[in-house]
Design a protein around this nucleic acid. Structure first.
Lengths: 371, 371
DNA sequence: TTTAGCACTCAATTAATCAGAGTGCTAAAG
DNA sequence: CTTTAGCACTCTGATTAATTGAGTGCTAAA
C-alpha cells in the first residue's frame, strides 16, 4: 500500500571521508574507518556499553587485529566521531559520530508488514481528526517504545467550511467554526450590541457563501482587506459580519499545539539516571513552547529530520534525539510528528517508523476529508 | 470572603485512645502517647528521617528521658502506629499512624491571605469552565508543590441549555450542545435520512423549548420515556427530534475525566528512588481509569477526604497520599479535586489548601453561571 | 602497514574497619 | 507502679584498601 523506499539523506558528512584519507590507498582506509564506525555505533546502540578494540576486531568481519583497530579508533577520535569516557574504556559515538551514522552509514530496517498493518488499522479507524492524531502519537510510542508526539494540524493550513453564531446572552455569542477537515472550534465572543437570531443567521450566511473553501490564512487576509473596504462603503451588515468573523478566525491562527503519548517509556532508559534530567525533560513536554519551536523548524524539511543530542540547541533535550517527519494535507505540509528518545536509539528501526507513520497519517487525514 | 473554619474530621480512631489505657491514670498516659505520636509525625514529615528517642525527648516539651520515650514508642509500635526500618533506627509512622494523625491530632495551618488571594485571582479570571478547571489544577500543584488534579464537572450534573444541528454532509450532522454552565460539546452523528436545514432548525427548536433547564440526567430519562410515547403517537417530527437528541445526550453521560498539573513535582521526592515506582505512578495518571474510580468514591463524602498509602487499594499509589474534596454546582456535588503527593506530606498545610480550593472553585463556577 | 607485546590506567567490586545513632533490657530510684 | 540511668548490642553508612578485568597507548618487529 505504501511505497517502502526511503529518500537519500542529505550527505552532509561526505567531506569527512575526504578528510580521512591519509594514505595512497585512500578509498580503502576511508571505507574501513567508516565501516568500523558503523559497526561500533550499531554495537553501542545494541548494548549501551563502550565498545573496545577486541570486540570490534571480532565483530567487524574485517580480520584486523585489535591493535590496528586501536589505530583507527585513534583517528576517529581525532576527527571527533568517537570518544572514550575514560582511558581504559572502549569508545562511544559522539554527536557528530551519530550524525555521520544516520546521514550516510545506517542501513534502514524495512518496517515489518505486521507493524504497517497496526498503523493502518489504528489510523483509519476514526474520522475525527483529533482521534486520528491521538492514535498516531500512541502508535508511534508503542512501535518505538519511546515517546511519540504529533503536532495538531496547523490552523492556518485548514480550510474554512462553515461558521455559525449562537446567542448565549444578549452580548455574548458562541461561535462555531467547522473546517473541511472535520475539526470543530468553539469560541465565546463578546459583541458590542445585541443581535436577533435572524440577524446572526444572516451574518453566518454571508460568511459561508463568501469564504467556504479558502484556507484560514487566506480567509484571514481577505477579512482584513475587505473590512477596510466595507468601512468606506458603509455596508453595515457586511461590516458587522466581517468583524465578528475576524474575532473568531484571528486567534485560531498560529495557536499550534501537539499531543504526546508514552512519555513514561523514557523513564526506562538508564541514561536518565539523574532524576533532575528526567524532570527537566518532562517539564519541557508540558511547557511545550520550545518543543513546538523545534517541530516548527522541521516543518519545511523533506522527509525524516533528526536532532541528535545537543543539536537541538535545547538543554532539556541534550540527552535525547528527536526524529521527525512532516505530514501533508491537500499536498501542503500541515504538521509534524515524531518520537523522542535517548540519543542511543535504534535509528535503523525508528526512522522508517516515523517516515511511514507520517505518510499514513497524511493519507488518513486526506481520506476522511474526501468523504 | 471565604469562611476559614474546618469541619471536624471523622474521629475514627478515638477508640485507639481507649486501647492505649494501661494504667489507672488512663487519660494522661493516653494523651501523652498521642502527643508523642503527633510530635514524631510532625518531625518525620519535616525532615524525612526516622526519629529516635533522644530527639523526641528534646522536642516533645514533655521533659521525659529518652528511656521513657522508648517505652512509649514500644507501645505505639505494638499498636501498629509506628515502626522502625531496622533495629538501630528511630521510628517512622505507619499508615495507621498517619491516619490517626490526620483524623484527630493534626493542627491545621490556616491558609495565608496571600495564597487565598492567588487562588481567587486565578479562579475568577476566566469564565470558561475548561479554563477554570485547568487553573484550579495548576494552582493546587503550585501551592502544594505536588501534583494537582481536578475532575471535570460530571456531565450528568450539568444542565441542558441549547442544542443545534448543522448539516455536514447529507447524512452526517454536527451537533452542538451547550450547557448552562457554559460548556460546549460537539459531536458528529450519522442519521438514516437527510434533512433540510429548516427541518433541523425545527428539531432544535422543539428540543430547546422542551428541555432547557433540566439536568442532563433528567433529560436523558425524559427522552427515553417520551420516545416510547411518541412511537405510538406516530408524531414523526417529534420522534425524529427525540432520537437525534438521544444520540447526543447518551454518550455525554458518565464520561468522566480529570485534568492534572505538576506531576513532575513528584519526581523531587526521594521517596520515589526506584524509577519503576515512579513510572507506575505516571502511567496510572495517563491511564486515568482507576484514579477516576477513587475520585468517584470520594464524591459523596463531606469535606476533605484522605487516602493514605495503601488505603487507596491501588498499587501505583501505595507510596502516595491522595487528598480530595468535592466541589459544588447549584448546591449539588459536581466533581472532585485534590492533590497527590508522598505519604510523608505536610498534611497540616495541604488539607486547608484543598479544602479552600474546592470552595473557591464552587463559587467560581457558580458565579460564571449567574452571568 | 599491520601486529604482538608490554606497561599502564581506570572503574567496579569486594572486604574490612570504624563511628554514630538508636534500641532493648535490667536494675535502681522516685 | 513509673521513671530513669546504664550498658550491651545491632545496624547503617562512610571510608579505606585490595583485587580484578577490560582496555588503552606505545614500541619494536614482521
Amino acid at each position: 500500500m505504501v511505497a517502502c523506499y526511503y529518500r537519500a539523506w542529505v550527505r552532509r558528512f561526505r567531506e569527512v571521508g575526504v578528510t580521512l584519507k591519509k594514505t595512497s590507498n585512500e578509498l580503502s582506509v576511508n571505507e574501513r574507518a567508516q565501516h568500523l564506525l558503523k559497526v561500533l555505533i550499531e554495537r553501542y546502540i545494541q548494548d549501551g556499553e563502550p565498545v573496545g578494540s577486541r570486540t570490534l576486531s571480532r565483530d567487524s568481519g574485517l580480520d584486523l587485529s585489535p591493535a590496528t583497530i586501536r589505530n583507527v579508533m585513534s583517528d576517529l577520535e581525532e576527527l571527533g566521531l568517537v570518544s572514550s569516557p575514560h582511558t581504559s574504556a572502549g569508545r562511544i559515538p559522539t554527536v557528530s559520530g551519530y550524525r555521520m551514522f544516520v546521514d550516510t552509514l545506517v542501513t534502514l530496517k524495512p518496517l515489518e508488514a505486521g507493524k504497517i498493518q497496526q498503523l493502518e488499522t489504528g489510523l483509519f479507524s476514526s474520522s475525527d481528526p483529533k482521534i486520528i492524531v491521538d492514535s498516531a502519537s500512541k502508535l508511534l510510542s508503542r512501535l518505538t517504545h519511546m515517546a511519540g508526539l504529533v503536532m495538531i494540524p496547523r490552523r492556518k493550513q485548514l480550510t474554512f467550511r462553515q461558521i455559525e453564531f449562537l446567542p448565549l446572552s444578549s452580548k455574548r455569542l458562541l461561535t462555531i467554526l467547522v473546517t473541511t477537515e472535520g475539526e470543530v472550534h468553539n469560541r465565546v465572543i463578546d459583541v458590542r450590541k445585541s443581535y436577533t437570531p435572524s440577524q446572526l443567521v444572516e451574518f453566518a450566511n454571508i460568511l459561508n457563501q463568501n469564504y467556504t473553501g479558502s484556507s484560514m490564512e487566506e480567509m484571514h487576509q481577505r477579512l482584513v482587506k475587505e473590512m477596510e473596504q466595507e468601512r468606506t462603503d458603509m455596508n453595515q451588515i457586511m461590516a458587522q459580519a466581517l468583524e465578528m468573523a475576524e474575532q473568531v478566525i484571528d486567534p485560531e491562527i498560529g495557536a499550534d499545539d501537539y499531543v504526546m503519548a508514552g512519555q513514561t517509556n523514557l523513564m526506562d532508559f538508564n541514561d536518565f539516571s539523574q532524576i533532575n534530567k528526567l524532570r527537566e525533560l518532562f517539564d519541557s513536554f508540558t511547557e511545550k513552547h520550545e518543543i513546538l519551536h523545534l517541530l516548527d523548524g522541521s516543518m519545511m524539511a523533506e522527509g525524516v529530520q533528526l536532532f541528535i543530542g545537543e543539536e537541538s540547541g535545547y538543554k532539556p533535550l541534550d540527552q535525547c534525539s528527536l526524529v521527525t517527519a512532516s505530514y501533508q494535507l491537500d499536498s501542503q505540509v500541515a504538521g509534524v510528528l515524531g518520537v523522542v528518545g535517548p540519543t542511543r536509539m535504534a535509528y535503523d528501526r525508528v526512522i522508517p517508523i516515523v517516515d511511514i507513520t507520517a505518510k499514513l497519517l497524511s493519507s488518513a487525514m486526506q481520506s476522511r476529508k474526501d468523504k
